[in-house]
Amino acid sequence: MFGNRYHAVDVFANDLSEVSAIRRRRLPAGLTRADKFWRRFHVTKNGKVYVLDLISGTGVARLARKETAPEPSPPPSRGGGAIAGGIAGAAIAAAVSKKGGAWPAGLLLGLLVGHALEKGSTAIPHQVVPRYVFTLRFDRATQQWQAYDGGLTDWMKSALAAT
């Protein structure tokens, strides 16, 4: 979608059936574990490998091209194997908490993440460097992602903006 402008797509973890399966320690077809902490997975589609990350504490699941996926953050302090379902469960809970109780049923939002407007620019302390994004909504009728510019646009950009 839109070529090489974007390197990842962020969605809320509770919107992905794959994450629910991971919470039950069942890997869906096409998913393989990439670390022992059940935070990073490889997804193969159309012969290409992507990385699915459950980003700690944010409720965000990020799908990125393997070559552009950053190194994962330091592992959690608790024992890795024992919290396999815990990380996915925590991600789902964080996503649900972010959305709140009034979330419209069936609304699935996503954010394409691109690079900074000025490549190679370094942020001035305390300033956010503008970057290319694209806000999306999943249309269940057409099973396609569509552009989204509704009232939740600003909120979803901040809620899904994982570092």
Binding site: L117, E118, V128, P130, R131, Y132, V133, F134, T135, A147, Y148, D149, T153, D154, K157, A161
Partner: peptide, 19 residues
């Protein structure tokens, strides 16, 4: 405004003159 905020984050005055 709705168009620009879909594609830029954040949408600032600097973005309007970035190119």
């Amino acid at each position: 405004y709705r168009l620009l905020r879909v594609v830029f984050e954040p949408l600032t005055s600097a973005v309007l003159e970035s190119k």
